[in-house]
Write a protein that binds this DNA or RNA. Structure first.
Lengths: 338, 338
DNA sequence: TTGTAAGCGTTATCAA
DNA sequence: TTGATAACGCTTACAA
């Protein structure tokens, strides 16, 4: 592509390559006039420094890699937008990579990013990822990494978390105070700590209100609307219908709602719903879905900030920090007793 | 990060660097035994070839850049998944970049990707992008580019398109044959050729059925649910309610539906809806939304195939091809007269 | 203030 | 089948 090199510019101006180099990295003493001439002619000639050569020497790219497990659910895209906002501001460029919830792809992606000499990584692991050996090695080698949302406790890095426990607790308590008795929890992917946190919040809310929760009130479900539908169909088939459902994410809640509505159940009169990680859909469906909204943009922003801090303060010893962000329970018709 | 170089391996084995290099790029004659030993010791030492040095010399990265305008709507993520599938298979890695519908960011993203020496670009322009000078230059310089979905006619590259005209036509015709008379079109972003194609399909369907369509039946709307809501509120306020709405995408349709439902209108009895570029929501909302589904995965796959073809056949003169894919009208309750 | 020359980690050419 | 050595395009001591 870019066939004009620093040598061409040097030749044209009868200067040495080092002088040209200086003009482009204004840290050396260089006569302002020469610099101006150089910059101008360089631009005219269409010269752009070859970043590969630069990276080869400097071992630094001003690129940040983002690794997410999926991005059809709206959540990760928003986090990315938040991160990008901060990173752009600080002069970093962003390379995004998605793994389709596949561990192998995730690893490949990370390696591609390494190959491109990213200065750091914003990472949210796939639900398949339980072996964190490779990441441990990266951390040990000093690659700045910030985990967000999907974290792993074996990895000693900075983390940006959502307070899943607390908001699952509140969401459940909301259902309890509305007077619902038979409340069921649709649990997400088993490998993820956030799933456990949400279930823990659910359980503890019951404990607080002295209700005994039996094991079978927590139903392993999954991520997608189809999973919610499947579970709802099973409930109807078994004629074992709860008063209310606390779903560990919106799509499963919405899928289940659809099935119940189709079968003539009224929401929230016959069965109430609360979702989690509020999606755009929550407010658009009928009835609107009560859900816990996460500060997606802020999660991205915080993660980016932590990462930059770590990158730019590489000399000083780095202490991993954990930032936990708060959300909001948006109460809508799907869970309000009339 | 990676401090072990080819020299270290050479020294350790008492071989020359060139021999090591040969072992890693099996195109040279090299004794199988030496190769095996080299590969093994290299692995043991944790050596990985430095891709920067490689790219510097080969001007090639086996990385493909993807540039999309947004990815919260589900459409682009799916296309990307399709593209990734093909690209991975052929040994390419994928670097994704999103511009938030901002022309400036888009350009920066493209330059980052150039800087990483991507072998080619899969590009869908932002709705702000009308100046294609920069892209023209890239194409002229020989960077393989395939445009998809959001294309620009000034750019003489391969393209993967959806037959927007045809399916807008069919969708509108469906409403007409259902007996709806007063049909309004909610039009998308003005800068995009696909918006015009969809409106053209809408208009031609009317022509075919000898109905006269007046200018004000096409309402500039936008992308998002909020836009649809705004338009619906205006209709209600002006008491100018159509029989049916053909929305140029799902979110606007769903937003408008919500407002009408809230105001007591029954769907489809009082007002019918058809969307476009079917989203996951279409089937989940109430009533389910008739919409035109696009073969998102195939769009990605086709674009990737065209790009690889062009990259790997660089010697031969390249003729830009345009692939147009077909979709499907998924008829659901929102538009069916009872 | 500018130039010279070594070096970043590879691959490629030529010799051996 | 292997080894020297010159590139690739840039930065950076050190010298001038």
């Amino acid at each position: 592509m870019n066939y004009i090199t620093i040598k061409d510019v040097a030749k044209r101006l009868n200067l040495s390559v080092s002088t040209i180099s200086r003009a482009f990295n204004d840290k050396y003493d260089i006569k302002k006039e020469t610099k101006d001439v150089i910059l101008e002619t360089a631009k005219e000639m269409g010269y752009r420094p070859n970043p590969m050569a630069k990276k080869l020497i400097q071992r630094r790219s001003f690129n940040i890699g983002i690794v997410v497990p999926e991005f059809i659910n709206g959540y990760f895209p928003e986090v990315i937008i938040g991160a990008q906002e901060i990173l752009f501001e600080k002069g970093y460029q962003v390379l995004i990579t998605q793994s389709n919830e596949c561990f192998e792809t995730e690893l490949k992606n990370v390696q591609t990013l390494e190959n491109n000499m990213v200065d750091g990584l914003l990472l949210s692991i796939s639900c398949e990822t339980s072996n964190t050996e490779y990441y441990q090695k990266l951390v040990k080698n000093g690659l700045p990494i910030v985990l967000f949302n999907r974290v792993n406790k074996d990895l000693n890095t900075s983390k940006v978390l959502f307070n899943d426990y607390k908001w699952a607790f509140f969401a459940t308590e909301h259902l309890i105070t509305q007077g619902y008795k038979k409340i069921v929890c649709l649990k997400g992917a088993d490998n993820l700590s956030l799933s456990h946190e949400r279930v823990r919040g659910f359980t503890d809310a019951f404990k607080k209100h002295k209700t005994i929760i039996t094991k079978d009130k927590i139903i392993p479900t999954g991520f997608y609307a189809e999973d919610g539908m499947r579970v709802a169909e099973a409930m109807i088939k078994n004629n074992d219908i709860p008063d209310a459902i606390f779903a560990c994410n919106d799509p499963t809640a919405i899928g289940a709602m659809k099935v119940f509505k189709k079968n003539g159940y009224r929401i929230p009169d016959d069965i109430a719903f609360v979702g989690f990680t509020e999606s755009k859909m929550a407010d658009l469906i009928d009835p609107p879905l009560t859900s816990v909204s996460q500060p997606t943009l802020d999660i991205g922003r915080e993660a980016a900030k932590l990462l930059i801090e770590q990158i730019e303060n590489r000399t000083g010893s780095h202490l991993p920090q954990t930032v936990t962000l708060n959300g909001q329970l948006n109460i809508r018709e799907s869970s309000v007793r009339i």
